[in-house]
């Protein structure tokens, strides 16, 4: 049984000036899939995510999200972004708003939810990421792990059809990585569609339904995470996996 893909990427090319960052990548994501993008830094994994919600414009190929072509500067890009949740490496919480207000804002401003329901939803999500007691705290008073959990709650608040994580644990202290990954596991159990750029191989192996190994702007290898990790077919993937084991 194959479902129609939520996201279709077809021979995508992204350049910064004369440098090619993404070099003709094609991939589809079907509903409920948890795709983990791995590979050395500077290979365009984060850039790929940013192209998918139009934070970067593209130089070639096509991205289609739920039948909507993604183009960075088109008016329609907002319709795509409303349906995609994004979690950033640096959290990017709004520093002038409390944790709760961070989760309320887009619900009210972008989706037209009334403030009271938005606040109820925010409190419910804060409880789910185990931060109910921090609802009134400003981001500056939260630890990195707490901030990232608020950011996840913020992304979930508007019920996105797909979540994108851009190295969500890379800016965290080692002790707080676990609490963020735990929340991500729970979200994964709801069979939400997720596109995750990560260096957490154990997480990828246990939670991911597919692993995509990228290098120098190309997909080098993809497959079931456990299999790819245990027996990478390409020499490039072997070398990469070896290097991160130490």
């Amino acid at each position: 049984m194959t479902q129609a893909p939520v996201l279709k990427i077809d021979t995508l090319t992204k350049k910064f000036g004369s440098r090619t960052i993404i070099d003709g990548i094609s991939m589809d994501v079907t509903p409920g899939e948890i795709v983990c993008l791995v590979g050395p830094s500077g290979t365009g994994k984060s850039t790929l995510l940013r192209c998918v919600n139009g934070l970067e414009d593209i130089q070639g190929g096509r991205i289609v999200f739920e039948d909507e072509p993604v183009r960075a500067h088109s008016k329609k890009i907002i319709d795509v972004r409303k349906r995609v949740g994004m979690i950033f490496q640096q959290f990017n919480l709004y520093p002038h708003l409390t944790a709760r207000q961070n989760i309320v804002l887009a619900q009210v401003v972008v989706h037209g939810v009334d403030r009271r329901s938005a606040t109820e939803r925010a409190d419910e999500l804060l409880a789910r990421v185990r931060l109910a007691h921090r609802a009134d705290a400003y981001p500056a008073r939260l630890s990195g792990g707490e901030q990232q959990r608020v950011a996840i709650a913020r992304a979930l608040a508007t019920n996105p059809h797909m979540l994108m994580f851009d190295e969500p644990t890379s800016a965290l202290d080692p002790e707080t990585v676990g609490e963020v990954l735990a929340v991500m596991r729970e979200i994964a159990e709801e069979r939400r569609t997720m596109l995750v750029v990560t260096h957490e191989m154990r997480f990828a192996a246990e939670v991911g339904t597919r692993m995509v190994f990228m290098d120098q702007g190309k997909i080098v290898e993809e497959g079931v995470p456990r299999e790819l990790l245990a027996q990478p077919r390409t020499e490039r993937a072997q070398r990469f996996l070896q290097s991160i084991r130490h």
């Binding site: 919600n53 934070l55 907002i78 972004r81 990017n92 972008v110």
Partner: peptide, 22 residues
């Protein structure tokens, strides 16, 4: 920071909404 604009855009806000609320 630039990330503030990106967070707003990623949530589907218009330029004006980002200016006004963020």
């Amino acid at each position: 920071p630039h990330g503030q604009y990106e967070a707003g855009h990623s949530q589907g806000m218009t330029n004006f909404q980002i200016l006004r609320h963020i």
